[in-house]
């Protein structure tokens, strides 16, 4: 092999780039997020009524689109009524409907969002966020 030293250095750089995430994560056990649903409002509900406005798998994938739509409907179209997947009527309101049940920001919203490295920008407008929520919040993000 000609210029073996330089070639091997190049291959080591390639190897480090390929395996960067492995070394970065080493020694840190990533906890799989488990959003908690044990708020007082949810506990009060009977078992069969413990459903969101849409089924859970759909909400896990699409909640950001739903919240965006809700904002547009409520603020731009003055439409405050939403009919859930089971025919139940809901008032379109982040603070009065969503957060009524999911009142545990750190254990619900932030559980996944910090794992994903995403900062939701709900709180840019919704100033009534309880102070204790701010503790676990991310410094920067998208």
């Amino acid at each position: 092999m000609y210029d073996g030293g330089k070639v091997i250095i190049g291959l080591i750089v390639l190897f480090i780039i390929c395996t960067f995430p492995f070394f970065y994560n080493m020694g840190r056990a990533a906890k799989v997020p488990e959003p908690k649903l044990d708020t007082p409002a949810i506990k009060k509900l009977p078992e069969w009524e413990r459903v969101c406005v849409q089924p859970t798998p759909w909400m896990r994938a699409n909640h950001m689109r739903l919240l965006d739509h809700w904002r547009n409907w409520a603020l731009r179209e003055a439409n405050r009524e939403y009919i859930g997947f089971n025919g139940k009527r809901y008032t379109i309101s982040l603070q009065n409907t969503c957060l009524n049940c999911h009142s545990n920001y750190d254990k619900f919203c932030n559980e996944c969002h910090s794992y994903m490295g995403i900062k939701p920008y709900c709180w840019g407008c919704h100033l009534q966020k309880p102070k204790e929520w701010a503790k676990g919040e991310l410094k920067e993000g998208r």
Partner: peptide, 25 residues
């Protein structure tokens, strides 16, 4: 971001700049 936890700050910075226009959700 899919392969690291916590997400390194340079990845977050790149995401931030890349989504500069804040179009759509």
């Amino acid at each position: 971001w899919l392969f690291t936890e916590p997400v390194p700050s340079f990845v977050r910075l790149v995401e931030h700049i890349d989504s500069f226009f804040q179009l759509y959700v």
